[in-house]
Design a protein around this nucleic acid. Structure first.
Length: 291
DNA sequence: GTCCAGGCAAGCA
DNA sequence: TGCTTGCATGGA
């Protein structure tokens, strides 16, 4: 039996120029390397959901080629923003200490054009609420299950993530059916709070990243690591520096910091890498996982 | 079967 | 403040 999405009509492929193109391997790392959990590999590229948009992507010499389902609003601008087409991050990366830091430089050279996807804050928060003590592949399955069971269908066969209101109404047993385990209580607790606070991150623009992370950490299931991920991936705070097991390992190897506590590693990362620490973190993360 | 995963929260000294 | 433990589940 054909799946519904197989009958979906797609627009013709178009080129989205990127200031900093990505090869196949780097595009894979960006879409499927633990930032977003919403992209699936297909024949020659990727298909996924970002916000309420659905798109197919494939590498192109000057950027990416993309198409979208027929009959929904054009996603060109949203995709350009999502992928940082104008290259704001490439400019920021110039401020990293790669000239004096050979370990970082090697990581950057290994993944040219790597970037932070500009995800919606809700999307990053929900995904990373599910992330604790889980592998990337498992997080992707949890998020997919939440979308399919509770999210709105935005194109045949494709579901957006559920709203906080919807998640707050779901019972914990249903969330556990999505494979969340003890994280179900995190999602429910945070959903109950945010369902009452529309625009929860509104008004944070003028706050320092440390303050933003502290506010995030007031939510159930959000500790230092998840807060840093949401700040970086969802709120565009490029100076946020999440420290997970991979980053702990790679900082130990590359910078002689074996045995340092997570909190101290975070301070090191922010001090050493500076205002684009989150970008450095993503390059080091990619390098660590590739070894 | 064992170890570990893009950790968090609570309990303890 | 800093360390330990329990937590659900599934890969490797």
């Amino acid at each position: 039996m054909k799946r519904r999405e197989d009958k979906l009509a797609w627009t013709t492929w178009r080129v989205l120029r990127l200031a900093q193109p990505m090869g196949d391997r780097v595009l894979a790392e960006v879409l499927d390397g633990g930032q977003s959990f919403r992209w699936k590999r297909e024949e020659a590229g990727w298909v996924g959901v970002f916000g309420r948009g659905v798109a197919r992507l494939r590498p192109h010499a000057r950027g990416v080629e993309w198409c979208q389902p027929e009959g929904i609003p054009d996603l060109g601008e949203a995709l350009a923003r999502y992928l940082d087409a104008e290259g704001r991050q490439a400019a920021m990366a110039e401020r990293l200490p790669w000239r004096s830091d050979a370990f970082l430089r090697e990581a950057m050279e290994g993944f040219p054009g790597l970037r932070i996807l500009r995800q919606e804050p809700d999307e990053a928060l929900l995904a990373f609420l599910c992330s604790s003590n889980k592998q990337i592949i498992q997080i992707r399955r949890m998020v997919a299950a939440l979308a399919e069971r509770l999210g709105e269908e935005v194109a045949p066969g494709f579901h957006a993530l559920p709203s906080w209101e919807k998640l707050a109404r779901a019972d914990e047993a249903e969330l556990r059916t999505c494979g969340l385990g003890y994280r179900a209580a995190f999602v429910r607790g945070t959903a109950e709070r945010l369902a009452r606070e529309r625009g929860w991150h509104g008004g944070w623009e003028g706050s320092a990243t440390a303050e933003v992370e502290a506010r995030l950490a007031e939510l159930p299931g959000v500790g230092p690591k998840v807060a840093a991920c949401v700040a970086l991936f969802g709120l565009g705070r490029l100076d946020a520096f999440p420290v997970d097991t991979w980053i702990g390992r790679v900082l130990g190897e590359g910078y002689g910091l074996e045995g340092w506590r997570t909190e101290a590693l975070g301070r090191f990362g922010r001090a050493h890498f500076g205002e684009a620490a989150g970008l450095a973190q993503q390059w080091l993360f990619a390098r660590a996982r590739a070894e």
